[in-house]
């Protein structure tokens, strides 16, 4: 009797759990869906559907200022991702393979950039650049992005290495491969999906970053998020909707590929 009751109660709980979760998914995705829908809306001002159009996307593609910001963003994202991926991967391998004095402390420092609020990182980098009289521009942005992305890359690659069988490295050396050959022929091919996954995430984070960049960007080094933010401060326009839709779309594709590789 009591068993039947508890089972019934369990099902009711299960149902509530399901409804709650799906409503939350709607909460997570509906705003983005609305944004995407309105990017195709003819109406300029009001949130009333007046017909389908590609107009706002055409406007975007003819905006030279925006194109300049996009180029800056791509330069920053590509270079900072490349540097952060190499440095982060080396770090992850060292942390996985070796024990060394101060490892625990270095570990904490390594993950600090992930948890320290962007605003603090932004103003401290700005203070640093001013202090050493470093000219703000694309280079200062790239340096900042590498600083936070090293941590993310190390985190993702290390998760991948966690399932890595160290005996494979020993087997390679046993068969005559020196440490470099072992890394190139065995370790790297096996962790490559994790490294690419980390690189894609680093790219997305760099491409999307507004706050830190806003402190360390100089004149003429406006990136896409900075441009977008200044547009957003003036209010909602269908062009921003279209641009946001594109950014969302690209980010999500990169994340999906990254997840697929990282699994």
């Amino acid at each position: 009797m009591s068993e039947i009751r508890s089972r019934k109660k369990f099902n009711a709980g299960e149902f509530t759990l399901g409804v709650h979760s799906w409503l939350t998914y709607i909460f997570l995705y509906l705003p983005m869906a609305i944004l995407v829908i309105f990017s195709f809306n003819k109406a300029r001002i009001n949130a009333v559907w007046t017909g389908f159009t590609f107009e706002w996307y055409k406007v975007l593609f003819n905006d030279t200022a925006l194109a300049g910001a996009l180029v800056n963003s791509l330069i920053v994202a590509f270079i900072s991702t490349a540097i952060a991926t190499v440095i982060g991967t080396l770090t992850a391998i060292a942390m996985y393979r070796y024990k060394f004095p101060g490892k625990g402390l270095f570990d904490s420092v390594l993950y600090m950039p992930i948890i320290v609020p962007d605003i603090v990182m932004g103003i401290s980098l700005l203070s640093f650049y001013v202090f050493i009289r470093f000219t703000l521009g694309l280079v200062s942005i790239i340096i900042a992005h590498v600083a936070f992305n090293i941590s993310f890359v190390a985190l993702v690659v290390r998760a991948r290495l966690h399932g890595y069988n160290k005996t494979l490295d020993e087997a390679a050396m046993d068969l005559g491969a020196n440490p470099f050959q072992t890394f190139m022929k065995v370790t790297l091919p096996l962790i490559l999906p994790g490294v690419v996954s980390a690189a894609l995430i680093a790219f997305t984070l760099s491409f999307d970053d507004y706050l830190i960049t806003s402190f360390v960007a100089g004149i003429g080094s406006t990136t896409l998020p900075i441009k977008v933010y200044s547009m957003m401060k003036f209010g909602v326009t269908p062009e921003i909707n279209a641009l946001s839709t594109l950014i969302l779309f690209i980010s999500m594709i990169l994340i999906l590929i990254s997840q697929r590789l990282g699994a």
Partner: peptide, 20 residues
């Protein structure tokens, strides 16, 4: 994946959606 996607995607754009 449906939770991971917004975890990594553009915070700015996701905030802007509420402006709309």
């Amino acid at each position: 994946i449906l939770v991971i996607l917004p975890f990594w995607t553009d915070f700015l754009v996701r905030t802007y959606a509420w402006l709309v």
